[in-house]
Amino acid sequence: MNAPWKKYLPAIACGLLVLAGCNERKPEAAATNHVAALTGQLPYNPLAWKPITTLTNRAAATTSTLYGNDAAVAYARSTAGAAYPAGSVLALVTWAERDDPHWFGAKIPGKPQTVEFVSIGAQPQYAVYRGSPLAQAASDQSGSRIDFILHLRAAVIP
């Protein structure tokens, strides 16, 4: 009476358990947002700076945060205009957006797309980093990008 299928019982039981496990809806475990990490050689780490504002672009499906060093942040939060003092450095970090695994209705930073720096000296200097890992790339739009970045006004923080 030793039915041959009996030897498969443990495997079947394990399979059912796995299926049952899959059926459970569990939130993604606590983790850092690893895919959004900035890789490559950047002249500064903008994520270690304070944020000035954030913006998104629906068509491009991107989310960006403008960061600044202390001089830039102090200026942006106290003065209207684009005349940042010398020594200010701004960084606009742009990520592809991804669905927030924890909240239907929200998007969070995904893969980094670009990191753009504007440094204020005698003339504003522009540099853009792209790719994975991020590497400096040429740009023929530095003038318009400088203008765009310098005119992003600070998000109101009472």
Partner: peptide, 22 residues
């Protein structure tokens, strides 16, 4: 809190807000 770092941002298209989490 305004002097803290941004640990993430969220684009809340469900309620038309955007957030920075410090």
């Amino acid at each position: 809190w305004k002097n803290w770092k941004a640990i993430s941002t969220t684009d809340r298209f469900d309620n038309h807000t955007m957030r920075i989490i410090f």
